[in-house]
């Protein structure tokens, strides 16, 4: 932080990005399933310098009652950033940005979650961004999906997410904060690997039709890499040795 060069080189002549990555490389990603004692399911993700925890409650009774649906369960998602998660202290009250992101994440998860099995109930997904560094919505969505599986909510598929984008006229994978600020395009994507469906898609910036297709393709590749780590996280909790809620480590 601080003392940033006025003219930052986003992509050097060897195709290396400002943080040392290649164009098709994601940042370091670590996912852990579980970790919270009270939530029915939870997950923690570090995606580059993003640090995000997701907790799931439900299916459970709907409060307020009038929101409940007699034919199906409902999904509620709250994406929220801590005051200390960004450069300047953020007001703790939800911003318009957080409300929109909550909505797109919810709609990215809905195709996967089999809510119709639980009429009159709600599944609550709470996402807390402890530290933000560009690409929080993708990291949040990936963590939320693991937390839902950890809660045993029936799902048709996992949802994995990663962004693609464009800097220095080049299509790249997993846009970081600097690239988002100074780059030309940022395209977050969420993807169901088995059902092969894109469930989150946004774009900020200008892409040619060719670049657009390349972006979607490389984005899905990124999602598949995240998916492997989601699988690993769930395997570590459930299939490797001791498992269940008791398997809480001292460190995340």
């Amino acid at each position: 932080m601080g003392g940033r060069e006025a003219t930052m080189v986003l992509l050097d002549e060897n195709g290396i990005r400002c943080d040392g990555r290649k164009v098709d490389e994601t940042r370091r990603v670590m996912i852990k399933a579980g970790g919270l004692k009270n939530a029915d399911g939870s997950a923690y993700i570090e995606f580059g310098d993003n640090k995000i925890v997701a907790g799931v409650f439900g299916p459970r009774d709907v409060h307020p009652k009038h929101m409940s649906d007699t034919d199906t369960g409902i999904l509620r998602v709250r994406y929220h950033m801590e005051p200390f998660s960004v450069g300047e202290r953020k007001n703790p009250a939800p911003s318009r940005r957080e409300i929109e992101i909550s909505k797109v994440i919810k709609e990215a998860l809905e195709p996967a979650v089999m809510l119709e099995m639980f009429p009159r109930t709600v599944v609550d997904v709470f996402i807390e961004v402890l530290q933000a560094d560009g690409g929080t919505r993708c990291a949040a969505l990936s963590a939320a999906s693991v937390a839902l599986a950890d809660a045993g909510i029936p799902m048709r598929d996992m949802v994995a997410a990663c962004a693609a984008g464009k800097v220095a006229d080049t299509v790249i994978l997993d846009v970081n904060n600097e690239e988002d600020q100074a780059g030309q395009a940022d395209m977050p994507m969420g993807y169901m690997p088995t059902l092969e469906k894109i469930t989150l898609l946004q774009l900020d910036g200008i892409l040619t039709p060719e670049e657009y297709e390349k972006c979607v393709e490389i984005g899905i590749k990124g999602c598949m890499q995240v998916y492997e780590l989601q699988k690993k996280a769930l395997s570590e909790k459930y299939f490797d040795g001791e498992n269940g809620k008791g398997g809480r480590g001292q460190k995340r």
């Binding site: 996967a112 599986a149 699988k231 395997s235 459930y238």
Partner: peptide, 9 residues
């Protein structure tokens, strides 16, 4: 076999 959601059995 151990499976997670979306795994083809």
């Amino acid at each position: 076999r151990y499976v997670i959601p979306g795994d083809t059995i």
